[in-house]
């Protein structure tokens, strides 16, 4: 098994009930497997977020929700097919603005 830290803010953190959590997955898991695991854990409430992620993956032009694996936007990795390793960190960046 591998452990992946999942970080989230704002609406997604509210859904998770925390900013940080650790999810255990089988060796060889991909990012899509992690999202499926979160889908099983959070059910319908997470489904809307999942559909947004898959839509963004398809359109390749995401303006409203970004996933960062070990700090790098997954569009610069293998997207949802990116293989996960023990100790990886996934961050859900909800739409933010105004620095």
């Amino acid at each position: 098994m591998i452990s992946v830290k999942v970080k989230a803010i704002m609406d997604i953190a509210d859904l998770f009930g925390c900013n940080e959590q650790v999810v255990s997955l089988p060796e060889g898991s991909k990012l899509s497997d992690l999202l499926d695991a979160l889908g099983r854990k959070y059910g319908q409430a997470f489904a809307e977020i999942l559909s947004k992620i898959y839509k963004n993956e398809k359109e390749k032009h995401n303006r409203d929700l970004h996933l960062f694996l070990n700090g790098r936007n997954i569009v610069f990795l293998e997207g949802l097919e990116t293989k996960l390793n023990d100790g990886d960190e996934l961050f859900f960046l909800s739409p933010v603005g105004g620095g």
Partner: peptide
């Protein structure tokens, strides 16, 4: 906008504290 009225209008710039934390 996906954020201007839906979130930013009610939180202002402190939301960036959370975003920059997530990005390290």
């Amino acid at each position: 906008s996906p954020v201007l009225y839906s979130a930013f209008a009610n939180t202002g710039t402190p939301m960036v504290v959370e975003a920059t934390w997530g990005l390290g």
